[in-house]
Each structure stands twice: as C-alpha cells, then as structure tokens.
Design a protein around this nucleic acid. Structure first.
Lengths: 208, 208
DNA sequence: TATTCTACAGACCAGACAGTATGTAGGCAA
DNA sequence: TTGCCTACATACTGTCTGGTCTGTAGAATA
C-alpha cells in the first residue's frame, strides 16, 4: 500500500535530505552516545523512513563515521581552531575562548559535554574506525593550539623554556576534563571554577 | 528438567556469588559502557544464570548502581585517596601518584580509561541516580586532593595565594582529561606527555 | 512519449536482550 | 524428620532494533 505520504513533498533534494539525517543523527549521538542512538529516533526527528536512511548510508556505523567527518570535525574547527587564526595576541585569544566558553555555549555543553570527547571516550576502545577519525580531529585541534602557543612564544609573550607541543596537548586534555567534570556535576559553576584553573596555568607561562 | 549443573557446586555462598556478579558487571561496564553491558555476558563470565542475577539485583539499573557504590567508589579511594593519607610532603605525594600512574596501571587504563569518568560521561545526563553516585565519588576524591593541597600550603610548600578548593577541582579535571586523551590515542606516551603538563602546573604552585 | 534511474516509502524479518515464571536443591529450625 | 526459606537453574516472552525487500513517484534522458 502506497499513499502520497506527507502531502506536499518538496522537489527532490537529496543533498539536503542527507544533511538532515546527519544533523539528527548527530543530536541523537550527542545525547545518547553512538550505541544509544536509535535509527528510529533519527527517522522520527527527520520525518523520513528507513528507505531514505539506507539509501544515503549503508549502515549505522557508516552513518556514525559520517557524523564525525561532516558534523563534529567542522564543529571543532569552528569552536577551537578558527578563533585562534590570525590573532594579534594568540595566548590571550586562547584564554578568551576558554573563558567565554561557559557563557557562549550553554546549556547543552554543560548537560551533554563535548561531542568530540563523548564519542572518543565511548568508541575509541571499541571501533578503530571511530578512533582514527576522532583522533584526527584531536590532531587538528592540537595543531592549531600548538601553533598559537608557538606564535606567542616567538612574540616573547610566553617563556622560551615552554614545550609548546606538550603544553598544547595538556591544554586540550585539561579543557576536556573541565567540560567532563562540569557535565558530571551538571553545573555551569563547576565549569567556570575548573576553567579558572586552566587559565591560571596558561598565565603561569607568561614572561614576567 | 534439573541436573546437577556444573558438577561440583561448592556449598552455598551468596555473598561471594553477589561479589562475582558485581566484578563481572564492572568489567563489562568498563569495556562497553553501561548501555553496552549485556547481562548475558555477565552471566557467561560468572557461569551463573538469570535466576542468580535477578535474585541478587532487581534489574539492570540496580546492578549498575551497585557497581558504582561497591566497586568503583572503593577503587577511587584506593587509587587516588589512600596514597595521599598521611604523606609527609602532600604535594610530592600527589605528584608521585600522577607520575607513576602510567606505569602502575597499564595497559587497561590506556585502553579503557578511567572507570569513574567513563561512566560519569556516559550516564550523567541520562540517569540522575548514576549522576549522584558518581558525583559523590568525585566529591570524595576532591576532598582528599584539596586536603593534601591545604596541608602543603600550611607547611609552606605552596604559595598562600593558591585557592586549594579550586585547584583540587582543576587537578581532577586535568587528570581525567589526560587519561581520556591517552585513551583516544590508545597511547601510553600521550598519557606521559599529558601528565607532564599537569605536573608542571603543580610545580608552578610551589613557593620558590 | 517511452524508458530509465534516482530518491525515497513502508512493510517485513531475524536476532538480541531485559525481564518473568516456575521449579528445585541445599541448609536450617523446630 | 518435617517443613520452610534461601539461592539459585531454566525455559519462556515481549519488545525493541538494525537491516532487508519490494514498490513507486518524480526527474532526467533519449
């Protein structure tokens, strides 16, 4: 039995359909994790059906991979990488991004944490495909942070004995830790307190 | 139909049976997350059956709660809290615990991360019962860390302008972040690099 | 206009999985 | 010894879920 389904179907737009699926899948993964994501929920959110989903993606895993590549990775670039580009004072730019985070992205960030880290923590030990994609995103982020630190170092803003590579790694880890702890407490205050510790660390790198 | 099951069944020991279930459930949760844990796998690991499990626990959720209270919480105390008790130099004791971590607890810690944080990240937004129990564990840990810092402060080992409460929170967050990043990379080296950053921060608190 | 292909719709299926219902053997009390 | 309760074993069920299969309307093509 076949009816006209949802009365008015706009002219075909497969790219947009695919994008809608990706975004709905992202939200489901963000809220429930990849294993917790139900394809039926994604379809309900998009008002699509199995046919559409399996036309665009061969299976659940491929959908998950696409969410990482096409949603999460660009998100990381927008939030953590672009704001550092071409900053006059790279160290201050980094501090600013961290300081403003609690207020620029609530309340989802507090409630559900960091999409990148969530998925990395869940899937890294279970699926090498996920791990590599997520680790690649961390790599991009790390590169941008390291570059900002190195520029600050060249400008004489931070001490010359700082290992920017190492510090960039630690900054990423600390940031994810702060977000994670705030999520555990479901408290924006916790995030602010935690971030203050990180900022204190960054300031301790400054040449006095 | 009833047979003697596994030939020799030791005399009844319900407490031990319960403990075996708890430990197997912990391992399953540790590896796959709570949502990913399959009761059948727990039973296979313990060579028990549904009857035993549902005799000791009313449902999967209750089993999860018990794992937090009776396995994970004691584990946190053993790893992060007891080593700080009664240390002559509390700051150094803290640094030691962090520094030795990569070598005292591999390779599971690298592969699967921190049981406490894993579960907190997965379940905090989804189940308030989990969240409260896990947040309580973080609270215990935080208290011990703060106390160590305050003692160090009273001993004149770290600066008086340090907010020990705040720093303890950040130290926990940074540690979980380091472990998480190492897990994402599946690399012990990453953990060492990351921890070095944290230790650098702790040393920066010292009175010079 | 006829044909073909794309982009879906919707019914269906098989396996997995939490939970239940029932039965029973061992130990303890009386 | 009898009766009872605890500590399990085992078969079973309902539901959820990823995935498949078939069908079809619109657009492109010839």
């Amino acid at each position: 039995m076949q009816q006209a389904a949802n009365t008015a179907r706009a002219t075909r737009n497969p790219d947009q359909t695919r994008q809608r699926i990706l975004e709905a899948a992202f939200m489901e993964i963000y809220r429930n994790g990849f294993q917790g994501m139900r394809l039926d929920e994604v379809l309900a959110a998009t008002h699509l059906t199995k046919g559409a989903l399996y036309h665009h993606f061969p299976n659940k895993q491929a959908l998950g991979y696409a969410v990482v590549d096409e949603v999460i990775l660009p998100m990381v670039q927008a939030v953590w990488i672009l704001p550092l580009r071409g900053a006059a004072d790279p160290l201050q730019a980094l501090i600013d991004v961290i300081e403003q985070m609690p207020d620029t992205k609530p309340p989802e960030m507090i409630q559900y944490g960091c999409p990148l880290n969530n998925l990395a923590q869940e899937m890294s030990p279970l699926d090498e495909g996920f791990r590599q994609r997520l680790d690649h995103a961390f790599g991009e982020w790390h590169g941008a942070t390291r570059q900002a630190l190195q520029q600050a170092q060249q400008q004489g803003l931070i001490r010359t004995d700082c290992d920017c590579e190492e510090i960039a790694t630690f900054v990423m880890a600390a940031l994810e830790g702060c977000i994670g702890l705030a999520k555990s407490a479901q408290s924006k205050d916790r995030l602010k307190v935690c971030n203050r510790g990180l900022i204190q660390f960054l300031r301790s790198l400054k040449t006095h």
